[in-house]
Amino acid sequence: MPEIVAEVAMENPEPLDALDAFLGGEEGAFAEVVRAWYSRLVAYARSFLDTPEECQEAVQDALLKLHQARRTIRENPRAWLFKVTRNRCLDMQRRAIRERKRTEGALPVFPGAALPPLERLEVREALGTLPERDRAVVCLKVLEGLSYEEIAGALGLTAGNVGYILHHALKKLASIIRPGGRS
């Protein structure tokens, strides 16, 4: 079994070529970068935002920012992209929260307190029970296979923190998912 998960970790469908080419001054590669990064960034954004439209907007903003900052990015560009996407998502989330506060006068509650039957709990919702930082760590690791170090760079944590957060986040997710009997 460990081998399977190792695959998850090893799997790294990084289109480094397009991104590298673009950051190396190949301006025409931008479209390719967009194609290559859309899916993963939208998937990532989905852990923060409710609607596909919002995700798309956030991702586009992040990609535009990449374009703008292409000569100045000095971090790992992949981590950078995730960081920017995340920041944008958080902005939009805040905006949504404010919007809701205005209309309902109440903060949205994550479904952590009273969980519905677990079989029906979507993974997205399970992720929703985690604090956003933890969600980000999980996504960056599981979906993107970034190293602790890279994740730490993107989120402003230490590698040690990342390991700790990831461990407890996965444990929590496991506790939610396991009773549902993942066959």
Binding site: V42, Q60, A126, S175, I177
Partner: peptide, 30 residues
């Protein structure tokens, strides 16, 4: 359990396909 959780996350968050329209729009805006 940890692997299952990680696997579920990976499966659960499907990767949407990109539309050429989005690509064009983004390139234009850039």
């Amino acid at each position: 359990a940890l692997e299952a959780a990680a696997g579920a996350v990976k499966e659960g968050l499907s990767l949407p396909a990109v539309s050429e329209e989005f690509v064009r729009d983004t390139v234009r805006k850039a």
